[in-house]
């Protein structure tokens, strides 16, 4: 076989592989935040995913100083968990982990973080802003990702979570909660008027 055929063969074979591009977008509803709550052995982890629209009122790239300040202020707010979530007094919960960042662009990169020392009482705080290169200009949304970890003395007293979140962000209209506890999993829809999820 002449080298030219070989080269041709390589390109034709390689092209489909390169063309394999996944295009998908998560559903993104303004006004609706998603919250995931997991409880195990006295540890409770709360993940909040909020559209940028609900929190800072825009979803374009924060370019002006004003926009950047709004994003920074929102992240500062998220870094004070007692303004966002409220746990039952009797459970005796201490914050073990807090993580908040703005997620922009349409590609999900993984944010895995483990190895946080849960025995320490000092707050492990981290605030950062991820700005990805634009992958596609159309349908670009931004989302705040927040994670809280708490260690609680009395798991039985951990019967629900309240969300003062709504008071901080008047644009937020609804939270869709999914939770897993010892007794099972469930879902709930929270609104500013009913801002508390009870684990059944």
């Amino acid at each position: 076989m002449k080298p030219i055929y070989l080269a041709l063969a390589t390109t034709t074979l390689a092209t489909p592989a390169l063309a394999q591009d996944t295009r998908e977008l998560d559903a993104h509803v303004h006004g609706v935040s998603t919250v995931e709550i997991a409880v195990e052995h006295g540890a409770i982890e709360i993940n909040i995913l909020s559209p940028g629209m609900d929190i800072v009122g825009f979803e374009h790239e924060a370019s002006s100083a004003e926009d950047k300040e709004a994003v920074a202020a929102a992240i500062r707010q998220f870094l004070t968990p007692e303004e966002i979530v409220s746990l039952p007094e009797g459970a005796g919960c201490r914050l073990t982990e807090v993580l908040a960042h703005l997620h922009t662009g349409d590609h999900d990169d993984e944010h895995m973080h483990e190895g946080d020392d849960h025995t320490h009482d000092d707050d492990h705080a981290e605030g950062e802003e991820h700005d990805h290169e634009d992958h596609a200009d159309e349908a670009r949304h931004s989302e705040f990702h927040v994670t809280y970890g708490f260690a609680c003395d009395d798991e039985d007293a951990l019967t629900g979570v309240g969300f003062p979140f709504f008071e901080q962000f008047p644009n937020a209209e609804e939270i869709e909660v999914q939770y897993v506890t010892e007794t099972g999993a469930g879902t709930a829809e929270l609104t500013p008027d009913a801002a508390k999820v009870s684990f059944e």
Binding site: E36, A38, V39, E40, A43, E45, Q178
Partner: peptide, 17 residues
């Protein structure tokens, strides 16, 4: 293995490229 990992795994599966 741990209930705290359910949502992480769920998201990984749901965004499995």
């Amino acid at each position: 293995k741990s209930r705290l990992q359910i949502f992480g795994l769920q998201r990984w599966i749901n965004t499995y490229p």
